[in-house]
Design a protein around this nucleic acid. Structure first.
Length: 792
DNA sequence: TAGTTTTAAGTTTTT
DNA sequence: CTTAAAACTA
């Protein structure tokens, strides 16, 4: 048997991973080690060489982008890979529930609630609690589902120890079931429940999916683990790929133990390590590794930089965030449009092998930050300097008020039991339907419909109760339902879809509505001649009609005339997005599901941006799986990165986040750290990040004035007063006692004067021979890197 | 009740 | 500084 050409390009470990069969497989794939290539090649190889039916392959990822990329790349090797099921966990769950949800009492027309909807639902159950508490509780319920805990699970107390939490969770579940919708957690948990209760269904799925692959396994949660465990029969081949150092979603239930304990949970598992990094020059990897090395509890691995040595990463200390933005802008601008060299002769720097030479493109650059809020400063500066950029992720298009309103209308159309959607829009614009009336209708729906089988149907309940309403409320409710009927009219029932038509039912009327809406959006502000709106197709007339008839469009236009125009434009965009779906009930359902599960908005560069590209502004979290030639990690300051409320395991996660960010860089890496930063509108003094102290200084070139305390030996203390974030030394037995002698790089010898407990651990006050009195937050008294100068 | 004013609070990270 | 929630007035 000859080696197929597509295997030739793989290194021995990659090839071993592709050719592996027969046992569970864990691929520990370091950053930039070509894991996507391994997965896609493996899919193609299974089809071509093993003769596997592509439809019996299930590959799960965590983001839709990753799923799409994987599908595209696998298809490049073999067309038939397009028939494999490549989905996110949540999209797979939704797919499962549409077909088998009835086994768990779920109607097939369920709508997926996002976190806001969950909070809104919970708020109706807990009307007397402050909103913050409701949010917290909703969060706890979501976590519980991530950990696969039902309301009756004894371990529930680990999530939320309040006595009443169990009851609230149960009530929430009951109400959600009455409405007939699901939340995000249900998309994973419910399939497992159903599979376990129905062995014949489990068997069917095990017969169908012979091979299961999981990408980014380090970010899977317990419920997802349970799902995998259930889907895997004795003869299912399971292969998971991940990197424990890149686990950054613990906060939303990801469980690193899934990857650490994979060999225990899937007996006889083999482990293959991919440790050759093809992405970054070695100093970049050295820097990233030196920081993440400070984590305990990791599998540990040695990444080898296949590209060899290159430019040393630069750390720039800057006065404030304005200087930071300017620094980034100049760095970028100088690389894209280099200033004319004053000296004669080409001043071509000796480029490291493999480095790009000549001018950079804007698209080579990415600016990374810890929180979305930090993008603003860069946007302002880049706008001023005419540097093209795109902001990834923060758009939150679907979280805008007007979009949520429109979606609520659509959701209610799909599921008239949706109390949350009903409450949101029934009185918007105000129709004289106050909370009292709404409560009456909802009450009637829950209680009144039991006898005639319309239980929960709010539309039915409203019709029944209408005669008893005041004139004002009556006309308001009537207007609301009339608007809905208008939208419904444009939908074709699924059982009556004509063969050649997905744009049916009053297309011309719909077009008129679109024209009207278009006029609205063009009235005030001139729109750049961008792409002509392709509305009027498929589902969009229905969406437009609903927006118009319900008065939502008008409401937002009149309510706020500055942003009103923008809001109309947003609604228009939503209508456009609907155009690719057929104007049927199931088309509408599909549209809503797509929106809930994939909120990423693909925005390609336009016009002359095509050539030079655009700079990417992005949170570190969002960079997972991406790479850039040149990366600037900004705001490397204590309190920002890591956030100052982080300690213990949370701090380790921040460290991994730093690792993820740094390893995105292929050629050049820059770090910036500000002495001052505006927060909450006030300027605050900042200290360099703990991580800078931990970093290997040999892998760092420092620009600007290093703040007091930033030494070659490590971050010791900054400024004066305040609680320090790192203890100078460890005491002899790991516990502090008053009188312990300590040594500090800058302050010399000292003695512990006082120990106090704080939320974040013991705070010790040390009097040094220099006369200084400094308080330290003693987080790391027993960890390896606090042993500097321990004199016990 | 609806709409306005005042006050407080808060900023992670996302399917 | 921006946003959301409570408090207040017409």
């Amino acid at each position: 048997m000859t080696t197929p050409p597509y295997l030739e390009a793989l290194n021995p470990e990659q090839r071993a991973a592709v050719l592996h069969t027969g046992k569970p497989l864990l691929i520990l794939a370091g950053a930039g080690s070509g894991k996507t290539r391994v997965i896609t090649t493996k899919i193609a190889w299974l089809i071509r060489e093993q003769g596997l039916d592509p439809r019996s392959i299930l590959a799960v990822t965590f983001t839709n982008k990753a799923a799409r990329e994987m599908a595209d790349r696998a298809r490049l090797i073999d067309d038939r890979a397009g028939f494999a099921m490549l989905r996110t966990f949540h999209s797979f769950g939704a797919w499962f529930l549409r077909r088998n949800g009835n086994l768990g009492g779920l109607p097939s027309n369920f709508v997926i609630y996002d976190d806001d909807d969950s909070v809104a639902l919970l708020a109706t159950l807990l009307p007397d609690l402050p909103k913050a508490t409701v949010k917290q509780t909703a969060h706890a319920i979501a976590r519980a589902k991530d950990y696969f805990l039902s309301p009756d699970d004894p371990e529930l107390a680990l999530i939320d120890h309040r006595k009443e939490f169990r009851r609230i969770y149960a009530q929430y579940e009951e109400r959600l079931a009455q409405i007939g919708n699901v939340d995000f957690g249900d998309l994973i948990k419910k399939p497992v429940d159903i599979l376990r209760a129905n062995p014949e269904v489990t068997q069917r799925f095990r017969d169908r999916f012979r091979v299961i692959m999981v990408d980014e396994y380090q970010d899977s949660n317990i419920a997802q683990f349970e799902l995998l465990k259930t889907l895997c029969g004795p003869s299912t081949y399971i292969c998971v790929v991940g990197d424990d150092d890149q686990s950054i979603y613990r906060f939303r239930g990801a469980e690193v133990r899934n990857i650490l304990e994979f060999p225990d949970r899937f007996a006889g598992a083999d482990i293959i390590r991919l440790e050759r990094n093809y992405r970054s020059f070695s100093p970049i990897l050295d820097l990233a590794s030196s920081v993440v090395d400070h984590n305990e509890g990791r599998l540990g691995k040695t990444l080898v930089a296949h590209r060899g040595p290159g430019k040393t990463p630069t750390l720039a200390f800057l006065p404030d965030q304005d200087a930071e933005a300017a620094f980034c802008a100049e760095l970028i601008e100088n690389s894209v449009n280099p200033p004319k060299a004053g000296n004669a002769g080409k001043h071509k720097e000796a480029a490291p092998p493999g480095a790009q030479t000549g001018r950079a493109l804007y698209s080579d650059w990415a600016i990374l930050y810890r929180t979305n809020a930090q993008s603003l400063g860069f946007e302002t500066e880049f706008l001023r300097r005419r540097i093209p950029y795109r902001v990834v992720g923060s758009l939150k298009f679907y979280e805008r008020e007007e979009i949520k309103d429109a979606l609520a209308l659509l959701s209610f159309l799909v599921n008239p039991r949706d109390e949350i959607a009903f409450r949101r829009v029934v009185n918007k614009p105000t129709r004289g339907v106050g909370p009292a009336t709404v409560d009456r209708i909802v009450g009637e729906a829950t209680i009144g419909g039991i006898t005639d089988g319309s239980a929960g149907d709010i539309a039915e309940a409203a019709r029944r109760i209408m005669p008893a309403l005041s004139a004002k409320a009556h006309s308001g409710v009537a207007a609301f339902f009339k608007a809905l009927d208008g939208g419904l009219f444009l939908l074709t029932p699924d059982d009556a879809v004509p063969e050649n038509s997905n744009t049916t039912g009053g297309k011309s009327a719909g077009n008129k509505a679109v024209e009207k809406l278009e006029k609205h959006s063009k009235k005030g502000r001139k729109r750049d001649g961008g792409n002509p709106l392709a509305a009027g197709e498929g589902l969009s007339p229905c969406v437009v009609r609903l927006i118009e008839d319900s008065g939502i469009g008008e409401y937002h236009l009149t309510h706020d005339d500055i942003t009103g125009q923008q809001r109309i434009a947003n609604l228009q965009e939503l209508a456009n997005a609907a155009s690719i779906y057929p104007a049927t009930h199931s088309g509408l359902l599909e549209f809503l599901e797509h929106i809930e599960l994939d909120r990423s908005i693909e925005q390609g560069p336009a016009g002359d941006e095509e050539e030079r590209g655009v700079v990417t502004l992005i949170t570190v979290h969002n960079t997972k799986g991406l790479e850039f030639h040149r990366v600037i990690m900004t705001g490397i300051e204590q309190g920002v990165f890591p956030r100052d409320d982080k300690n213990g395991d949370d701090l380790e996660e921040e460290r991994r986040l730093f690792y993820v960010g740094a390893t995105r860089a292929m050629d050049e890496l820059y770090l910036t750290s500000c002495a001052m930063r505006r927060m909450f509108g006030r300027t605050m003094p900042m200290e360099p990040s703990l991580f800078l102290g931990e970093a290997d200084k040999k892998a760092l070139r420092v620009l600007g004035k290093a703040p007091y305390g930033f030494t070659k030996r490590g971050v010791a203390s900054y400024g004066s007063g305040g609680v320090q974030t790192k203890a100078p030394v460890a005491s002899s037995d790991g516990r502090w006692k008053v009188g312990d002698r300590v040594f500090h790089d800058d302050q010399g010898y000292g003695a512990v004067m006082e120990i106090r407990e704080s939320d974040e651990g013991p705070v010790i006050r040390v009097k040094f021979e220099t006369g200084k009195d400094i308080r330290f937050l003693s987080l790391h008294q027993s960890s390896k890197y606090t042993k500097i100068g321990n004199d016990a």
